[in-house]
Nucleic acid binder design. Sequence first.
DNA 1: AAGACGGGGAG
DNA 2: CTCCCAGTCTT
Length: 372
Amino acid sequence: MSFEKENIMVDINKTVFQGDLLEWYDINKRDLPWRRERDPYKIWVSEIMLQQTKVDTVIPYYERFMSLFPSVEKLAGAEEETVLKAWEGLGYYSRARNLHQAVKEVKESYGGIVPNSEEDISTLKGVGPYTAGAILSIAYNIPAPAVDGNVMRVLARINTIYDDIAKSTTRKKFEAIVREIISTDRASDFNQALMELGAMICTPRNPACLICPVQNHCSAKEEGVQDLLPVKAKKKAPKKLNMKALVLKDKEGRVLIERRPDTGLLAKLWQFPNIEAATRDHTDIFSHIEKIGIELEGSEVHVTQKVKHVFSHIVWEIDVYEARVSKVHNEKLYETDTRNSQRFITVDELNWFPFPVSHQKIIEGTIAKGEV
DNA sequence: AAGACGGGGAG
DNA sequence: CTCCCAGTCTT
C-alpha cells in the first residue's frame, strides 16, 4: 500500500469522523448561556469559569457575572474586590484576578477587542494553551486545538493512547492529533463537540459507548478497553492543617475580619482572624488576641464550632472561638480605610466582602445563628 | 516535572 | 470514601 493511498484513507476516515461527530452535536448540544451568542468576551469569561469547574456550577455564576460586567469595558472599570465578590464560592480565585487584569490589558492595548491571534491572546494573564485555543476556535472559528480533560479522554480512547494525561507533556500529543482531525470550516463546533461528547457520552466512568456517534472510529471500544482509559496518575493525599479562627464581637455587635495576603491561598479574600494551631491548649489564641490589640471580657475562651474544609491539596480542621471584646487598644481596627487589613464591620457589611467557603461556614455556624 | 491553587458533585 | 472536572502559574 502506497504512502499516498494511506493518506487518502485517513482523509476519508477524518471526513466521516467529523461528519458523525458534528451531526450528533448539531442535534444533541446543550443550550448553554455562552452558546447563545458569539461575543469573544463572553466566550472568554465562560472558558475561564469552566476551568476545573463543572458546567452546572458555572451557569449561575456566569449569568450573575454577565449582568454585573456585560462587556470588556464594564469589567475593566470594576473594582477588583467587586470582581472577587462575584467569584465568591467558585474557587481558584487567581482566575478572577488574572481575568480582571487581562481584560484591562485588552481595553488598553487592543482597543477593547479580544485578540484573535495565538501570539497575542497567549500573552493575556490566565490564558493558557487550552483557553487560547478555545477562544480562537469557539469565538473566531479558527482551527486551533483546545485540549482539555474531556478531549484527552475522548482521544485517548479513540486512539488507545496510554500516556499519562496527568503529565504536562502529554497535552501536546493530543494537540497534534486535533490539528490533524479538526474541521477547518467548523472549528468552533468541532472543538465544542469533542468536549460535549466527553461530558455527555464519553464520560470518565461508564461511558455510553452503545449510543456514541463515533463508536465506529473508537479503538478502545473495538478492543473493549474503554474503562482502562485514559491513564492518569493519582495525586497524593492533601496535607492536614489544624487551624484556630476567632469570631470577635465588640460591644456594638461588630465583628473583626481581616484581608488575606495578595498572593497564595485564597489571596485577597477576607476571613476571620485565624492561626495555625501551635499548642493544644488556648495559649496560642491568647497571644494572637494580644497581638491584634484587643482585650476580651473574662479570661475564658472556648470552641463553639468545628469546621472542616477540604482544598485540593490541603485540609483545614478549624476550631472556631467566639468571644466578646471588652477593650480595643488598636484604634485602626475602626478605620474604614480599605487598605486596612483588619477592621470591625457590622453583620450586614459581611455581605460586601468576598469570603472563602471555609469562612462562610463559620458565619453560618456563629453569626447567622443569631446570638451576638 | 511537580506542586500550588477551590469547590462541588457523582458513584 | 475517591475521582475529577471546558487548566494555569510558579518553582
